[in-house]
Design a protein around this nucleic acid. Structure first.
Lengths: 223, 223
DNA sequence: GTACATCAAATCGTATACGATCAGTGTGCG
DNA sequence: CGCACACTGATCGTATACGATTTGATGTAC
């Protein structure tokens, strides 16, 4: 073969299916048939199988032996569990990343948050969600602990998949969200301790989760 | 075939290699050759490959494309990262599991902790470590959030692998550990809030980590 | 003696093939 | 008419085979 193999086929299959789930092209319950995906990618089933198993480990697909894989269903419980995980992991990542947050970083984050505020004026929820994701990536992105960073990213991908399947859950939280971001950035700007940053970040997510739980008539999270 | 296929060969390979790494039979750096393991298991390389990839996702093995897999090396950084992850995940799991901790559970946990104290009198560090693992499993074991539970278990398995490779790190922490366990059980017995339980559990791990970092001449963890 | 090109062995990556297992369907019996 | 059972099609699980890639050794030129 002449072309350079930039990535393995297994990796390609993983990227493809993963992106389609996160995008919403594959809705929850969608049946992932190895042979079909293999044909589409022009490869055999072996690398596709490996990709599916990886996605299963991430919780994006549900796999039953000798039966097959389907895109994982989303319900209140899954949302609760994912949010609880992020509620402890993301603040830790942010606190650990605080060392790398200099003036330039702060300016960028503030600008992004202002853009989010503008999205509210413009009633543009799609752009708001995109920027919100970007904002949080900015927060935890420079976390020096690869395990924690990886867990945060996985959690966000699950959230993205949930949103794509029109599992909406934020009743009027957007405005408070922007304010909480601002407060968090102020803390960072004032060189607050990692513990303070962690607490603020956790409260932010806790507020979102509990707003959802309240709207859904469910009991607030124990943690 | 007459025999019931209790588990797939892929699963069997995963169990085998995983246990050997955790036991220390495979030391860090040990080369995991697909064909060799496949021969030993009496199966082909395909299921072994899948098992190795799973172990890579867990961080127990290091995998390089077209080169092969080796048991992950352990160093201070990996220990720090694993402990930081557990420092946020395990307390959350414990706090969430608190609902399921009744009087019978408490009696069992207290008995176990007393056994650990006895191990100290008998200078039996092996039994102490085993019971310590058991004690912590008791703490987080009934966590109702499967994602968090899974993460805690993975973290503990990594710690076990580190200990097996004689990466010793606890300078005289055992006695304090037993006392902290006791204080934690008192909190639970007095029906403390999840937040209090979480904080106590986190302090316990934080103390262990920082004792290590201090002994190693390293800066304390930011979180 | 060192640096570089070449080659061979080892090992991985994936295609293909076939057996194993499961869900759904039809048929016969009670 | 309803239930149990065998059958079938779809799909997965794994063995085998072969091409691709890496690594280390060997030989050669400087």
């Amino acid at each position: 073969m002449v072309a350079v193999m930039t990535a393995s086929k297994s990796e390609a299959a993983y990227q493809l299916v993963s992106e389609r789930i996160v995008n919403g092209a594959y809705s929850p319950g969608y049946r992932l048939v190895l042979g079909t995906i293999a044909d589409e990618l022009g490869c055999s089933v072996v690398p596709v199988r490996e990709a599916i198993r990886r996605l299963e480990a991430e919780g994006l697909v549900h796999f039953t032996r000798n039966v097959g894989a389907t895109v994982a269903h989303v319900d209140s419980t899954l949302y609760l569990h994912t949010m609880q995980t992020l509620m402890v992991i993301e603040p830790a990542a942010t606190a650990l990343a605080a060392d790398a947050m200099d003036a330039a970083w702060l300016a960028k984050a503030r600008a992004l948050n202002e853009n989010m505020r503008q999205c509210l004026e413009d009633f543009d929820p799609v752009a708001f969600t995109r920027m919100n994701t970007e904002f949080h990536q900015l927060l935890y992105g420079q976390c020096p602990n690869p395990h924690i960073l990886d867990l945060v990213q996985r959690g966000w991908r699950r959230l993205a998949a949930m949103r794509a399947s029109s599992f909406t859950h934020i009743p009027n939280r957007a405005r408070a969200s922007v304010q909480e971001h601002e407060a968090l950035l102020d803390l960072i700007g004032n060189h607050a301790t990692p513990a303070q940053i962690e607490a603020a970040c956790r409260d932010h997510r806790s507020n979102t989760l509990n707003a959802y739980l309240k709207a859904a008539g469910m009991a607030p999270s124990a943690i």
